[in-house]
């Protein structure tokens, strides 16, 4: 049975695609109702997505984070869960323009990867390893949300400075909210991610007596950690307005994607 052959995955994909189209449609048509429909579609997709995550756990007997389709499905799930929590708290629609396509992309990768359900290698059956996978995944989701809100803060700052309303003006919350959410998401996400990496190093040390191997995912994860550390320092210094901060965010985002895509390599 391949991962791509399960109905709930396709149902989730279909709803996510509709939700993303509706959200992007509202951006261009300025019809607010489309945003509501988009959110409802995404929530329906999230329910199916949750079913899919449950299916993986039931069939493999472990959290869905051991190969590429499992990891992308789980990261996408956590990203949307955090986005939903933030929407409930701040009613921010603008982040959906970034987050919905990201969630759709992650789940699409999960679907097209078509890898087999991975029975867990006995060597990986360890609480430290599970903690490593869960913490890094949740940390990545937090940091991606931080980058999304950081981008919104940058856009809002430019619009206010240049006295020119862009397409996002109506959808973006206040500058203070964007700054606060991006900083908190980055700070919390980074701390969890760091704890996850440390757990990974510890597990690697225990099993191979070495700190870590230097494969794609490890290099990607370490590069992402360094970039996010610098990014966090920029935020603490109040330099989210600088173009180099935005560039750094983009690089950190790519590094995270490389780490996720390289999970099986």
């Amino acid at each position: 049975m391949t991962l791509a052959a399960t109905d709930t995955l396709y149902v989730a994909l279909a709803f996510y695609a509709l939700g993303t189209i509706a959200a992007l449609g509202s951006l261009f048509t300025k019809v607010k109702r489309l945003q509501h429909y988009g959110l409802l579609m995404m929530i329906a997709g999230f329910v199916a997505h949750t079913g899919w995550i449950g299916t993986i756990c039931t069939r493999t007997g472990h959290p869905p984070i051991t190969n590429l389709p499992e990891a992308t499905a789980f990261v996408g799930w956590v990203v949307f869960a955090v986005e939903l929590a933030l929407w409930i708290r701040y009613r921010v629609y603008a982040a959906s323009f970034f987050v919905y396509p990201l969630v759709l992309l992650l789940l699409t990768i999960s679907a097209v990867a078509g890898e087999q359900f991975a029975p867990l290698n006995p060597g990986l059956r360890s609480n430290v390893f599970t903690a490593h996978l869960l913490l890094t995944t949740i940390g990545v989701a937090g940091m991606l949300i931080g980058v999304a809100f950081g981008s919104l803060a940058f856009i809002q700052d430019r619009a206010l400075k240049e006295k020119r309303r862009g397409r996002f003006w109506e959808w973006i919350p206040s500058l203070d909210v964007c700054k606060r959410v991006s900083y908190h998401a980055l700070a919390i996400g980074f701390s969890i991610y760091t704890a996850g990496l440390l757990a990974g190093i510890l597990w690697s040390y225990r099993t191979t007596a070495g700190l870590m191997e230097l494969r794609v995912k490890q290099v990607g994860a370490m590069v992402a950690w360094v970039l996010f550390a610098v990014l966090l320092k920029q935020y603490i210094a109040g330099e989210f307005r600088r173009k180099r901060t935005v560039l750094l965010s983009a690089c950190a985002f790519v590094a995270v994607l490389v780490a996720i895509l390289g999970i099986s390599r």
């Binding site: 109506e170 206040s174 500058l175 203070d176």
Partner: peptide, 22 residues
């Protein structure tokens, strides 16, 4: 959203203040 945005100078200032501080 027909009544959402301010159409006088003082209200426009308040709308902008809300865009900055919430």
């Amino acid at each position: 959203g027909i009544g959402e945005h301010a159409v006088s100078v003082p209200y426009a200032a308040i709308e902008l203040a809300k865009k900055i501080f919430g």
